[in-house]
Design a protein around this nucleic acid. Structure first.
Lengths: 335, 335
DNA sequence: CCCGACTCTTGGAACGTTCCAGGTTCAGGG
DNA sequence: CCCTGAACCTGGAACGTTCCAAGAGTCGGG
């Protein structure tokens, strides 16, 4: 018999299924004798409670779903850590699913998780439109992390991407750069759009509107590499500094620069966004914008559970201040 | 009403629940008129089938559980990609969970997933003992990926870590190194133990048994960084080459070397294991051992499903040949 | 005009839990 | 020796599906 049930345990222990249920859930209203008998029977049979049946009758699963827009992005993994931590702290388990950087696959993941009746859904850096998120939110509370969202039903925790991107540009301008390009993350991700807006705004403010150059990349290493190769192909007209939409893509950009035999920051300055751990090592030492990833994840869980308790009211939105971290991948432009 | 049920849909469409069920599952034995009516009612109500109830009665969930020993290890993410791909291809969904590089948290994750009655469990680079895995396997088929396992009930897909590690040492010896150290991944992971064995065996074969130096690290960036710092503290007695247990830790080691102001491979050669994508870029260009990560994941899924169909018989074990990839992080020792 | 065959549709049982209302046991007070 | 209340235990209903056996129509042939 593959899966012994509560009835098998009850029979073996000579008690009713209800009592077994009580014991399994650690109720105090059970005599020591019976408790022992039940526990023993369960052990002997290798009984493992069926969370599916439990979930059906209780109408809550104790599980939070979490969709990572991209499993490979180290920043998202940091956020996921915070989420799992936060969930655990409140007696929930988190189950993850990858969105494969693809809106339709992300939609499929949302659907699966909602069909499984998770108690709530966390989206890390989603590609899903607000419309679709709000529709999904009718089947359970949703909080988006690391992507700002304007919605009355879907909550969000994010940093101020516009301000962060502007800070990067300001820093580069201060170092003396004028030709500052941007490798953006595509239009699909909200964070990508916001960072691009911050870049353009800061360029305009600095009086370098003419020098604005946004190259389409992606929030991936290969996206960064290819976009950077394109930029390097500009030859003498190439920018002296590049702000890449995120660190993960910046790693790819650094690779392309090394491939071209150029030096960072001697020939070209590079900055990223997210402050992933690899960017911190001296081997990479990337100038970037830090976000409190794990804390954001935990905060998102709290907001989700808050909303689980009280469905009414409009969703909360938290925007955290970004934090520029200057390292050695940026320096004065070549003279 | 948060969750409309099949009965709500049936009532609205003026049919029985059974018919709704038939329509939802795309049965061909339903007249067009009724199908349309049901689909319309479902749409209007925002009906989403309850996978929990379905799972209870069907005794299969269509979900495969997948535990990543460490969510941050890029290699594991590559394997997970293959698993999700493979699962999807066979009409299954994969749900992930992190083991946080901790045996007890991994055990908790196994328990959660089994209680949720996933149809099978994939372990990527597990820390769980064979005993415990075999016990868990009584509740559902388990296949381990990226860690060799000797068991009749738990299947595995892995590469030959001993051979791979030996190949790295042979390569370093050929370059002229004698003092070759190893940063190992601790005793918890099977792959770590095997790679260490391969290192020691190759050193002995080369006649450098005396030069053997294994420093305790971990399969993480910080583990690699700290172990390398320890090695660099040896001063003049320090090795001329270091084989790090995996690429992820090797990135940390490279960071420590950069921190110390040393050059790779001029001052010291570094090799890793896994061939993660960042290691391939010219900026890092790490000599390493490649494993077909995604293919291993897919293969693991096939083996799992095979076993799902036929519980009897002993588990299959696949061992793939490793593949040394020489890049520029290794070179001749300083003269 | 009935019969059989076929297509489409239906109600009820089952899945393994939780929860509730109520049952049993037993010690102790009157 | 009965009654009461506390402590412990129990059976049945419910959760939202699937599946099965069987019912209801429809149609063509005899």
């Amino acid at each position: 018999m593959r899966h012994p049930t509560i009835l098998d345990v009850a029979e073996r222990a000579g008690v009713s299924k209800s009592l077994v249920s009580l014991v399994m859930r650690g109720s105090p209203r059970v005599s020591e004798v019976r408790r022992k008998a039940v526990l023993e029977a369960a052990e002997e049979l290798g009984y493992r409670p069926n969370a599916v049946a439990r979930s059906l009758v209780r109408k809550r699963s104790g599980v939070l779903g979490c969709i990572l827009s991209d499993l490979h992005n180290p920043f998202f993994a940091d956020v996921a850590d915070g989420i799992e931590e936060g969930a655990m702290a409140h007696g929930y388990r988190a189950l993850l699913s990858s969105g494969f950087l693809d809106a339709s696959r992300e939609a499929a993941a949302i659907d699966t998780l909602l069909q499984l009746r998770v108690d709530g859904l966390l989206m890390i850096g989603t590609l899903t439109s607000i419309r679709d998120l709000e529709r999904a939110a009718q089947s359970g509370p949703i909080v988006v992390v690391a992507a700002a969202v304007r919605s009355r039903v879907v909550g969000s925790v994010a940093n101020d991407d516009v301000a962060g991107a502007s800070a990067v540009v300001d820093h580069l301008v201060e170092l003396g750069h004028r030709r500052i390009a941007h490798i953006h993350g595509g239009d699909a991700a909200a964070a990508g759009r916001a960072r691009r807006r911050g870049y353009e705004r800061a360029m305009r403010r600095a009086g370098f509107e003419e020098q604005t150059l946004s190259v389409r990349g992606a929030f991936t290493e290969s996206g960064g590499r290819e976009a950077m190769a394109e930029i390097l192909d500009l030859g003498e007209r190439r920018p002296t500094a590049v702000f890449v939409a995120n660190d993960y893509a910046a790693l790819g950009a650094l690779g392309a620069i090394a491939d071209a035999g150029l030096e960072v920051p001697g020939d070209i300055s590079i900055a990223g966004y997210d402050n992933i751990s690899i960017a911190q090592t001296r081997a990479v030492s990337l100038t970037t914008v830090a976000q409190p990833s794990a804390a954001m994840g935990q905060m998102a869980v709290e907001m989700l559970l808050e909303r689980l308790g009280d469905e009414r009211g409009t969703a909360r939105h938290v925007v955290l201040p970004p934090n520029l971290v200057v390292r050695t991948s940026t320096g004065p432009p070549p003279s």
